[in-house]
């Protein structure tokens, strides 16, 4: 072949060719879809801040929910108390079980068929609709409490139990990820110094993974606090504070208010005051999720071991 006849233009991309135009079109579409995807995020957060922000006053955190014809004032002090108690119950149940289960999966059962199956079940469990978890908690706690004659069964404890089931797979997964980040040399060093498995895990591996586990757990808690469906027929709702000071732990056998159910109840009411409170409660739920997500993001981006 003669070099002089070589036409370098053939190697250039011609701007008008259908292939180039198609590429530009598709690239434009992906930019567009990213824009469309972020639009609802901005719209939801913007509206929640705009509508809820103006209603957040000090009284909102202490007063009880307004009745239908109360035009002004009122708050959701009882719902905040309820949400905190529900989440604490859920955390007390799910954190020990979840963390130890993850310890088995990463430390002792690693690579076995059994661990694989357990991981599979855990992943499927995390996809179970939250309303089904509510039905489950109803069957396990509410019906049994009712049969035992303890109140009518609808109780704070049942709500906390339902939330714990939702948190469980998230905590297992988060802990597993954190434990995997601990380098194997750390374990080898501990075992080399004569530590038993128990000592290695509890004195060396878990402390090393602790910051990451705490971040994952905090995220799980923030998510659980916004869950509504599993509480609708377990913890129900209450117009008042839980009578903890009078009844002590027995108060957990009674229904409780929660921020999430309050938003649901007030969202469809025709009364402006109640609607405003629904927005204010939404703002608190959204801020909680946003802040924990951002903080955990910053915390996990600095991995030091």
């Amino acid at each position: 072949m003669n070099n002089d006849e070589f036409n370098a233009d053939l190697l250039k991309r011609s701007p008008g060719s259908p292939r180039t135009l198609f590429g530009i079109l598709m690239t434009g579409l992906t930019f567009l879809s990213a824009g469309i995807a972020l639009l609802p995020l901005v719209a939801v957060i913007g509206f929640v801040i705009a509508k809820g922000g103006s209603r957040i006053k000090l009284g909102v955190f202490t007063e009880l929910p307004p009745t239908a014809y109360q035009v002004d004032g009122g708050g959701f002090g009882n719902a905040i108390q309820g949400t905190i108690i529900l989440v604490v119950i859920a955390a007390l149940i799910s954190i020990p079980i979840g963390v130890l289960a993850a310890v088995y999966l990463t430390e002792f059962g690693k690579g076995t068929k059994l661990a694989d199956w357990i991981r599979f079940f855990t992943n499927v469990l995390s996809g179970v609709p939250s309303i089904i978890v509510g039905v489950f908690a109803y069957g396990v706690i509410v019906l049994n409490l009712k049969n035992l004659g303890i109140g009518n069964g609808y109780s704070t404890f049942a709500g906390g139990f339902a939330l714990s089931i939702l948190m469980l797979p998230i905590i297992v997964r988060a802990t597993e990820e954190s434990l995997k980040l601990v380098p194997p040399e750390v374990r080898q060093a501990a075992v080399g110094l004569g530590a038993t498995n128990f000592q290695t895990v509890s004195w060396v591996v878990l402390p090393a993974a602790l910051p990451a586990i705490i971040t994952g757990t905090t995220l799980a808690i923030a998510r659980a606090a916004g869950e509504t469906a599993p509480l609708l027929f377990t913890a129900l709702f209450s117009q008042y504070y839980l009578p903890l000071s009078e009844k002590g732990p027995n108060a957990l056998y009674e229904p409780t208010a929660s921020l999430a159910v309050l938003v649901y109840n007030f969202a469809t009411r025709p009364f402006e005051n109640q609607k405003e409170l629904a927005w204010a409660a939404s703002l608190i739920l959204v801020l909680m999720v946003l802040l924990t997500s951002i903080i955990s993001r910053i915390a996990t981006s600095r991995k030091v071991y």
């Binding site: 609802p40 995020l41 939801v44 509508k51 938003v263 649901y264 999720v289």
Partner: peptide, 24 residues
């Protein structure tokens, strides 16, 4: 950052989406 923002969409409670949906 954008990956994080997209993931945040999944973190907003369902009931808040409902409230927003009704109003907006």
């Amino acid at each position: 950052v954008i990956v994080f923002l997209v993931e945040l969409l999944a973190a907003i409670p369902s009931v808040v989406y409902g409230l927003w949906g009704i109003a907006v």
